[in-house]
């Protein structure tokens, strides 16, 4: 086999036809109906194009002989960029704040952890190592499989924490505002209830007074009756004594 030969046939067809674009559109079936018709008419009178067309069709058949298997599964160790992992971490701040007194304290703790020590934080997808750069104030963040470590400057981290803290604080303020409104509503209801209770109390007092008045009247009546009875007994006794 003489592979080093240069191609001998060059197919530089003499009388080069200027219907190349039309031929390609026709060959790949990307021509409009009118373009098709026009080119088919042209084919009848142009041997260059008709020869080229059938040659190109044969080439396309050859091209079809190279079929590939499905791609091997692409494994990319992307996981997430350190910056994204960090953002996710920052998103967890409100949870941390339950333990810490304020977000500010949590943020300060995090900065201390990042800049002073080496912290190993386990997230769902493997271990993330936050290692402090001994040389300076840069806290570099590297991730398990990721080959290239992206560095976050301390300013970056502080900015992210600041943003998150502001966000959390804003939602806290909103909650406080909501609570205040609800409390005011309850206060109003309580005041209304108080007024009702006062009315009831007055009513009860009135009724008691009425009852007392009635009872008093009943007692005097009874006394009068008792007095009357006693009187008659005395009278009877007088009679008895008289009989003895």
């Amino acid at each position: 086999m003489k592979r080093k030969d240069q191609p001998r046939m060059q197919y530089r067809v003499e009388g080069d036809c200027d219907h190349k674009a039309a031929l390609i559109g026709y060959l790949y079936d990307e021509a409009t109906a009118s373009e098709r018709t026009a080119f088919e008419l042209h084919l009848h009178e142009c041997s260059v194009c008709s020869e080229e067309l059938s040659a190109f069709r044969r080439v396309r058949e050859d091209l079809g002989s190279w079929q590939t298997v499905a791609a091997p599964r692409t494994e990319i160790s992307i996981a997430r960029s350190p910056v994204e992992v960090f953002r996710e971490l920052i998103r967890m701040l409100p949870v941390w704040t339950r333990a810490a007194a304020t977000t500010a304290i949590a943020a300060i703790l995090l900065i201390i952890v990042l800049s002073v020590s080496r912290a190993h934080i386990n997230l769902r997808e493997g271990t993330i190592t936050f290692g402090a750069n001994a040389a300076g104030s840069q806290a570099s963040v590297s991730m398990g499989a990721a080959p290239e470590a992206v560095s976050l400057t301390r300013e970056d981290i502080e900015r992210m924490i600041d943003a998150r803290t502001t966000e959390v604080r804003a939602s806290d303020l909103q909650q406080i505002e909501e609570l205040r409104t609800r409390l005011a509503g309850l206060d109003a209801r309580l005041a209304a209830a108080d007024r009702g209770a006062m009315r009831l109390r007055a009513e009860v007092a009135n009724m008691r007074a009425e009852q007392r008045a009635l009872l008093a009247r009943g007692q005097s009546t009874l006394g009068e009756w008792l007095f009357a009875v006693n009187g008659s007994r005395e009278a009877w006794g007088g009679e008895d004594e008289r009989d003895d």
């Binding site: 030969d5 240069q6 191609p7 001998r8 046939m9 060059q10 197919y11 190349k20 674009a21 031929l23 390609i24 790949y28 080229e52 040659a55 190109f56 044969r58 080439v59 396309r60 050859d62 091209l63």
Partner: peptide, 16 residues
Amino acid sequence: SRLYTGLQQLRARLDH
């Protein structure tokens, strides 16, 4: 035009 030229060159190579 690249398709056209490419197919022409491919054809020449194949024949060769």
